[in-house]
Design a protein around this nucleic acid. Structure first.
Lengths: 343, 343
DNA sequence: TTGTATGCGTTATCAG
DNA sequence: CTGATAACGCATACAA
């Protein structure tokens, strides 16, 4: 009782034709007589014939599917991106295979090897928070494999990148807090390995400088795993809250950091925004519900997925040389709510 | 500058060997001399050879990957299940290909066809809320393809199923509400096509009966899309709230329904649990944050994914005949909080 | 208009 | 110990 698929050969045998005739009839080739075509198509439909894409891939050296690696698709930001990716890919007849790195470098390497070992035509990747060594991606790129980065990019690898304006995001958020009357703004950031983190931080610094607010090293902390682990956020916030001169606002520059901040405040019974203001990067649908007074920096995730996919398909279909790669920078959206207006 | 993979042939040519020798050396066959082995392995490592899984699949008629179809992986419940699936699958050397139906019957059929034709060795599926006609799955099953259902199962298709004890979940939740002093308990359910829904509802009925609480048809409503669309929930709740005799508690028997209930109450400024009690099915990590006083029915998602995968791999590797299929029923967990204790 | 032969990358089955 | 050949399912150049 094993599952046996029906092949062109079966059709050929049943109809007393050759496999090539059947193949051509199925592809509606002009060289086949209408009568034969009809016969073949009808029989194929009857026995529910489906071409074997594995055989096709082997022959055509392409699978019409693209691989995606993200840290975690339970994360709203990434699931929105994936929806964007799928919207374009399906439209163009490509399938999408998704892997999660769970922010683990090791897992990322495994995923990459599986995907890249030729079952996919190209790769969309947002590197894990842990990833420092990029040689696994670099070597693939060196061999001419189409890769597009999104959100978390590897600056040193020269291919298309789709990112948000992280600098401006950090800058705008900080300016907003300062102009709302906050003076001691702590910066709680994600993984130190990600360029995103650095750029957002630079925006923060620039804003402080521009408004003449003194920078305090004690008001800065990183979360190695991008805030995935609650303890990272807890430790950082504990540090802040025990300073002799506590912060009056927190800028959380990564999605997971933001929700874990809320969790911390809830558990410590610290009220946002009464006891402390919080402005966080987040793409969670539920931020309104979580804390209606939380100001939020939101990223154009769906659009990001779409653009990255378009670029990748261009690479795959070689409508462009790989060399003149692009860096698309999308704007972020600051949704200010009462939280960050000092009374 | 096209991406060209290195094959066994390349190695053979470079080393002046035959492809079969190289193949055997790579697989560490006993018939190959240590010297040749060493030579081949070293060269393979040097040029970073990776076997082409497409060719392997074609030859072996198996891909060592399994397909998964869920409605939405942004949904915590399903992402937890997928983590359970991956934990087992990776362990046993299988890869996992995930598709989302977005609760659309049409999308489910497309996904199914893609996966099945892409030579996955087996399928794990939780049917979409919209799915009524099961013939696409039935025909695959009829042809002997290994399928295991989880969570949302098709009763008529005779294969392994992994579910939770929905009846008991509905029953326990209702009993808890009644025993906490609530009298008019509305039941807001998910898709009417899912057996889950019916079972949870039956549990609700049974509890009412057992405690001698009268059943009121007006206190019952369904969400066709499983609560995915906010409007469905909104309409249902509007109906409830405009009854001459309003409910004093709501039992939300689907994840999305639960969060959309919270959204509704927030938007209408109705306080839980002061104005109305809410007890919901939910696997969201953030339920505590969303509403710390919300009692919750939680499903053992990770475990469910693991069990389903184990059963599927047994089917695939034919350690069991397909006929004596199992129905594994896992217990649900009721996390009661202050919400559902009437003052 | 249809059939035959070949190759995609790999391994298994024969021969040597 | 190693090499040649066939086969997996399909499409296509070439023959007929």
């Amino acid at each position: 009782m094993k599952f046996e698929a029906v092949t062109i050969k079966d059709i050929a045998k049943a109809l007393g034709l050759s496999t090539s005739t059947v193949s051509r009839a199925l592809r509606d080739s002009y060289e086949i007589s209408p009568a034969t075509k009809k016969q073949v198509l009808e029989y194929a439909a009857e026995i529910n014939y489906r071409p074997n894409p594995i055989a096709l891939s082997l022959k055509e050296k392409r699978s019409r599917s693209i691989g995606v690696i993200v840290c975690e698709f339970a994360n709203s930001f990434f699931s929105q991106i994936i929806n964007g990716i799928e919207s374009i890919a399906y439209d163009k007849g490509y399938n999408v295979i998704i892997s999660q790195s769970h922010e683990s470098y090791e897992r990322e390497v495994i995923d990459l090897n599986y995907l890249a070992s030729r079952s996919i035509d190209g790769l969309l990747i947002s590197v894990s928070a842990e990833t420092e060594d990029l040689s696994h991606i670099q070597s693939l790129h060196d061999r001419g494999f189409p890769i597009v980065f999104f959100d978390r990019v590897a600056e040193t690898i020269l291919t298309h990148k789709v990112i948000v304006d992280n600098f401006k995001g950090g800058y705008d958020a900080t300016i907003h807090l300062i102009d709302s009357g906050f003076k001691r703004i702590a910066n709680l950031a994600g993984s130190p390995f990600l360029s995103n983190t650095k750029e957002r931080f630079d925006g923060y610094l620039k804003a402080l400088e521009e408004r003449g607010v003194e920078f305090d090293q004690d008001l800065t902390s990183h979360c190695l795993h991008g805030g995935m682990e609650y303890e990272e956020v807890e430790n950082a916030l504990n540090k802040f809250m025990h300073l002799s001169s506590k912060p009056d606002a927190i800028l959380a520059t990564a999605d997971k950091v933001t929700t874990n901040c809320l969790r911390y405040f809830k558990s410590k019974n610290i009220k946002v925004p009464d006891d402390i203001a919080l402005l966080g990067f987040s793409n969670l649908d539920l931020t309104d519900l979580l804390s209606p007074s939380l100001s939020v920096v939101r990223q154009p995730a769906f659009e990001m997925g779409q653009i990255a996919t378009e670029l990748l398909l261009q690479l795959i279909e070689s409508k462009r040389p790989v060399r003149d790669f692009e860096k698309r920078v999308l704007p972020l959206q600051l949704l200010a709510r009462e939280s960050s207006i000092k009374k």
